[in-house]
Nucleic acid binder design. Sequence first.
DNA 1: CCCCTGTGCTAAACCGAGTTAGCACGGTTA
DNA 2: TAACCGTGCTAACTCGGTTTAGCACAGGGG
Lengths: 345, 345
Amino acid sequence: MPASRVTLADVARRAGVSRTTASFVMSDRTDMRISDEARQRVLAVAEELGYRPNLTARGLRTTVTRTIGLISDTIATTQFAGEVIHGALDTALAHDHLLFVVETSDDPAVEQRLIEGMLDRQVDALVYATMYTRVATPPPALDGRRVVLLNSLDETFDGPRVLPDELAGGRNAAAALVRAGHTDGIYSIGGRHLIPATPDGAWAGRLRMQGAEEVLAEAGLELSGTVECAWEAADGYAAVSGLLETGIRPRALICLTDRLTLGVYQALQQAGLRIPEDVSVVSFDDSALASWLRPGLTSVALPHYELGKAAVDLLLNGDQSRAVHRIDMPIRTRQSVAPPAADRS
Amino acid sequence: MPASRVTLADVARRAGVSRTTASFVMSDRTDMRISDEARQRVLAVAEELGYRPNLTARGLRTTVTRTIGLISDTIATTQFAGEVIHGALDTALAHDHLLFVVETSDDPAVEQRLIEGMLDRQVDALVYATMYTRVATPPPALDGRRVVLLNSLDETFDGPRVLPDELAGGRNAAAALVRAGHTDGIYSIGGRHLIPATPDGAWAGRLRMQGAEEVLAEAGLELSGTVECAWEAADGYAAVSGLLETGIRPRALICLTDRLTLGVYQALQQAGLRIPEDVSVVSFDDSALASWLRPGLTSVALPHYELGKAAVDLLLNGDQSRAVHRIDMPIRTRQSVAPPAADRS
DNA sequence: CCCCTGTGCTAAACCGAGTTAGCACGGTTA
DNA sequence: TAACCGTGCTAACTCGGTTTAGCACAGGGG
């Protein structure tokens, strides 16, 4: 039974002091003179009764609720949001905050309702997140609030933003191949994501490719080719099948997502090519899939957890500066990369 | 700028009535006599000023916050929690509620802190969820609260529980094969999950197998064999490779998870067997993987969204009866099931 | 003319904290 | 001996709503 909660008044009464005194003791304020004896008495009683301040009441008076809103366009579809929530949650908890988690499904009316709902509950600050990196502008309802943008390219936003460091990620992918000794027959599968929906390529795609090409150039190398295609499993299968049919025998592949790589694996294995003995494969995302594949897929991680963590950290540290925080994309090494076979040089 | 909010007092003043009257109008209470004229005036002013009640203040007085807590053991690792959150969120929103989402990482100390945090914020009710079905008992801190258990087998719990209907799911899987005309060479890969950690099998495994065997028996059929193994990708690969090496040529496989099936696909394709022409495959989970695989995998869905939805529905309908609500596990038909080839009967 | 009933409204208390203003007391100094 | 100061505390107000108790007035009946 939720036996009616112990209030500050209960504590004060039992300790023989006024509510005011009890309040000052509990909030540890030193600008008011309280005898050490009274302080100890209040603390002892609070402990004994298991007093916990009612944050709703406190919130009403102080307008701070120790609560943060996390607005996302999508939660379910991808593993993305799960990790972001996880990172945000852990960080919030470390600072004694809780999270309202909310999903707009990219519907402005829903978004409006959800934001109103959070403001009605007096959230202290908000993370405005999107599932994948794109230009996402927070609605006017958030103007003047403490907000951090997660995964948004909105340059006009006047506050901190958190983004994955895709350029460095691209460099990490190529560096793994260079380190293994690859010098030629390196192909990119997926490329910049030059499909009708994104004719100029996806932001992530452009930066990943740029990073990869930088590293190759620094080693005096270059890509033998790029298959531009969409980033789904079927596209990876088609891309590599096509490559093999033209007689090309790649020695290393930079695939732009793990999903894509699922198809790539199927195409390579169907053609009797062994990973990594015949062909090395690096990918991006480090999704659960990367560890399920055989051999385990070496993949550059999208730092979802760290993105969520960084966003909440910025909010709780009160950082309102207009800066872009790029989060490292570390490579998770598994078994899909090996030195090129000597007999085929 | 968050221009200081419009309060009920503002509305009352402008409408020329007392706060009491304004309050009664806004909360649409009929037990107090308000002239239609006054009512209209208040409503018009509220609309004009864009009045929104401060739910913190209301919560303090009424102890209802229109806020629900969702406690989960894990969020990030699986797609599970994402869908559960999604379903819970949608349903909460439909009833003008918001969700605190929280993850315990199965650490009782963390769980305790999180529950205290939610109670300090006066949540109205809570969903106590686990990532996969197991005996999970809510801690004493939740005694006497409105709680729904999601995915827990705790028989001692005195309230509603929500579970996937695994027995019906097992029936659905087998029925798909029977419907396609399969009569023999049907094997189960994964079985009851009889591994050292779960020597009696997993709850889901037992029910899925029972359901499948029921349906086969009703059609006068039976399994040609079961490979008991763990439910990861590598196990699926090993299981089917092993089967094929003994000279067995299965005609249909019931695989107990999509992950497992990923390995199964690799083993079959490596052996030159075509799906579904040579071997039909049904699976469980309907994860994203099922749609990524080639050919698309027919899979019995774990109804995560519906579980979350049902749990919140029960909470908001005030249902406190001690009942187990089994949620349907519908089969998602793709391309991995076909009639058995005639030439091999 | 008084009493009664119904209508329409409001004053004031309340929820549980935080915060401001100031009081009582003892000791020190002029 | 009064003025002054520091110490230790509390009364009362505040936040923005909900809720209880009851007041003022009009109209009808006896």
